[in-house]
Design a binder for these strands. Structure first.
Lengths: 236, 236
DNA sequence: CAAAAACGTGTGTTTTTGACACAATTCTAG
DNA sequence: CTAGAATTGTGTCAAAAACACACGTTTTTG
């Protein structure tokens, strides 16, 4: 087999940023490392690209190992490649982010990896450039969720409108008007009524909806400003 | 120096998608290869990541070699990493896209690389997965240009509103209403009047504006729907 | 059974969009 | 040197969307 001459081959890692939502706050699945390097510190879940493995496939494998979940929302975020980002050896890292329904997790797999769900508010410092990765991922999540209905990926298959609103409020760290939010979401025709009510609620039980997946796919292609009030320019 | 054991090191390439605008149509700077592999075929400008070189730095180097330009708009698009994308040897490619003012190019450097500006409409087939890269880049450009004022990067420092409109029409392949477009752009306060007029125009000479760079930077952070009519869902 | 908490729907005002009219500038043809 | 064609600049108005609030309903708790 022919090869390219005179060019350095380097390590290719993958890191996964795994978002979840517990009904109150946005969470990350992080690992307290019980292995080297950086034993004892917190990091993202990661691994190396194998021979004969596509990038997307490798990201899926890493996600599956940790959560037991397949077919989640998984999107390439960005590749990080400054020279000394990994002090052990030069390594570039292709970072993916994933949105999972926290209820579907494989608790045993998570414990086996010494991982836990941490609120973004109380996130510890992470190794290498993983903090920067999380920052970029959160930006991307905010960006995409304002224009595409990907928030549903973080909710159970049946959910109420107020739950969805709490999710958006957690993602953006703001308060939204309940009535306008409801009208906006309903206008998309993305929700299918199940007729059931949320039995977990303490007070009035909200109506449970499921996602209209045909319409969902269409909304992923185009874009729709779900939350115009979030478009505000940061500097003004 | 410690190293990670048992993991394959692979080649990391970079490819650059270089967009330009000639006043009529959106163009790509493509290379007719006079070197192996795939001698004689068309491809993107690319290269390999060097030791001691950041990814962003490498992309900038490749762009500079071809165009003689630095400090252009340069953004990482995505990393392509299916196993057999390069038949010579497994290689992942970190792809960047760049927006350049076509008037600033270094003609000698471009000729030396056997490159030319090709309209997107008449783009030849490219090697490997470069066609797919271009498709993704165009999607990204359309996405970003609808929400951030990055179109200006493709224009000369002084430009008229009709020129800007022609650019948007080329990016999206549609016709826009002149009067509504003007109102929308003016409302952003992004344009600074120079008092001069466009002497190249054949008929009525339009007013030349420059970009208000302070406001420009703010618009890059947040988002603003420059062209709401482009939000239409592809499937409906 | 009264109060508190959360849910669901409605209404009016303001802002933005989208469609279109008209006047002004500049070159060219006769 | 003037009429007409092409293009640029500004304005108007109706419809749609966004925004700010009001009110009634459901359910648990004390």
């Amino acid at each position: 087999m022919a090869v390219y001459q005179h060019n350095t081959r380097i390590l290719v890692a993958l890191d996964c940023i795994i978002f979840g939502f517990d009904g109150e706050s946005l969470k990350l699945l992080l690992i307290k490392r019980n292995f080297e390097p950086e034993y004892g510190k917190w990091s993202l879940m990661g691994g190396f690209l194998n021979d004969g493995e596509d990038l997307e496939e490798a990201a899926g494998r890493i996600l599956y190992n940790l959560t037991g979940l397949r077919n989640n929302y998984l999107e390439q975020l960005q590749t990080f490649g400054t020279v000394y980002r990994d002090p052990v050896e030069r390594t570039i890292s292709v970072v993916y982010y994933s949105l999972v329904n926290i209820a579907d997790q494989d608790v045993a797999a998570i414990q086996a990896h010494n991982a836990s769900w941490i609120s973004l508010d109380s996130k510890p410092a992470l190794i290498f450039d993983h903090d920067q990765m999380v920052t970029v991922a959160l930006q991307r999540l905010r960006y995409k969720a304002a224009l595409h209905p990907i928030g549903f990926e973080l909710l159970p298959s049946k959910f109420t409108v107020p739950q969805l609103q709490k999710l958006y409020e957690a993602i953006y760290g703001t308060q939204l008007d309940r009535r306008n939010f409801s009208r906006k979401i309903m206008a998309t025709d993305l929700l299918l009524s199940t007729g059931e009510k949320d039995t977990n609620s303490v007070t009035k039980k909200g109506q449970l909806y499921t996602l209209n997946s045909d319409r969902y796919r269409k909304y992923l292609d185009g874009y729709y400003t779900f939350l115009p009030e979030l478009a505000e320019l940061s500097g003004t």
